[in-house]
Amino acid sequence: MIAYNQFAQNDAGLKPLVLTELIQHTSQVNLNTMLMPMLAALSQKESWLVMLEPPKSLTKQVLADAGVDLKKVWILRRDKRHGLDKLAQRALQAGTCHTLICWHNDPADDALVSQLKRTQISSETECLLVRKKI
């Protein structure tokens, strides 16, 4: 697994989005189990934790059992009108979340990765991109 930060170019007083990627390179590692303590901690912050297209295995019950405060979590899923890129941009533009976590499991979502790497924001929101390369 590799984690690194990607910073975009600064433009017109906006700050680059801090983008951290977690990449799963082997099926031997269960990222959900590894993420649970972090999700629980992030849900204790003052503003919203936004989870964009989390795996179906991360049910509300699983999250609650791991200590995640569901009152401070938004779970967003794509639909015909809203793709991952649009949902991510709306969450970031709202400025009401401290962390946006995006699960990227489909090669069709590669545009989202490129877009996030170029994103400029006016808030303190950080982004975690979780994806599999197996």
Rank of each mutant, 00 (worst) to 15 (best):
K72C: 12
N10A: 15
L49K: 05
L52E: 01
K60R: 11
D65M: 07
I101D: 07
Q93F: 00
R131G: 02
M38W: 12
K71H: 15
Q93S: 03
Q115P: 02
K132D: 13
W103S: 03
M51A: 05
L58W: 14
Q28H: 09
R90L: 02
V68C: 07
K72N: 15
S123N: 07
K15A: 13
R118D: 15
H82L: 06
L22H: 11
P16C: 10
D79W: 00
E46N: 08
K60F: 13
K72H: 14
P16V: 03
H25T: 10
H82R: 09
A108I: 08
A108M: 10
S122K: 14
I23P: 00
V73R: 06
Q115N: 12
V50K: 00
I121D: 13
S114D: 10
N5T: 14
S122G: 15
V113E: 07
L129M: 06
K117Y: 02
E124N: 12
A88T: 01
A8G: 14
M36W: 09
I121P: 06
P37Y: 10
T59S: 15
M1Q: 06
P37S: 09
M38S: 09
A3Y: 13
T26A: 13
V73F: 09
T33V: 08
E53W: 03
Q6A: 08
D106M: 02
W48A: 04
M34L: 11
T99K: 00
L14F: 14
E124S: 12
W48L: 09
V68W: 09
I2E: 11
K56E: 12
K56F: 10
Q44L: 06
T96S: 11
N5I: 15
S114W: 14
A88K: 00
D79H: 05
E53A: 06
S114Q: 13
A40Y: 05
D109C: 02
A108R: 13
R118A: 15
M34H: 05
L129T: 05
L49F: 06
W103V: 00
K71I: 10
L31C: 01
S27P: 09
R90G: 00
A91Y: 02
W103C: 01
V62R: 11
P37N: 09
M51P: 01
M51S: 08
P55W: 02
M36K: 05
L92H: 01
I121Q: 09
G95Q: 07
P107T: 08
L92S: 08
H104V: 14
L49E: 01
P55V: 01
N5K: 10
T125L: 07
G95L: 05
K133S: 11
T125V: 08
L14R: 12
K72I: 06
M51L: 15
Q93T: 04
L14M: 11
L17P: 04
K56S: 12
A12R: 11
G67A: 10
A64F: 15
F7S: 13
V73H: 10
A41M: 11
P54R: 04
I23M: 06
K133Q: 14
P107W: 01
Q24N: 06
R131P: 00
M36R: 05
G95M: 07
T26W: 08
D79E: 03
K56Q: 12
M34V: 06
E124T: 14
R118W: 04
A3S: 14
L128P: 01
I2Q: 12
P107R: 00
